[in-house]
Amino acid sequence: MSFDGLWPYIYIAVAGWLATDIWRWLGVVAGNRVDENSALINWVRAVATALVAAVIAKMILFPTGALESSPVALRLAAVLFGAACFFLAGRRQIAGIAGAIAFLAAGLALTGP
């Protein structure tokens, strides 16, 4: 498509903003009706967490861009190494993140493109 004029902005407003904010508004309407301690909110919480977890899994298993050509075993090993660091350090976030990134960087440097 052409990136000139007003059309791209209309395209972004409809296919981007409206397509996303509709669900946020529906979430407010739904959230206003559930009690914080009900069984229903537990289910909503579980579904929301599983959705975010699915996005995470997709980013690790099927990345786009620079990681697309890296071996999947390296990415999985980096996550497992990060998890080990996270739990060994007493569930410290920074240990888990630093461990995973360091493992990935070393692996990328060794397997190198």
């Binding site: 996303t20 509709i22 669900w23 979430g27 206003n32 909503v44 975010v52």
Partner: peptide, 26 residues
């Protein structure tokens, strides 16, 4: 096409609904 783009983006954003719905009561 605009309609197809809307569909693809909106499907990826359905997750916003339970995310917002679980935060609002808190």
């Amino acid at each position: 096409h605009l309609a197809a783009a809307f569909l693809a983006v909106t499907l990826s954003s359905v997750r916003m609904m339970p995310m917002v719905a679980s935060l609002v009561p808190e």
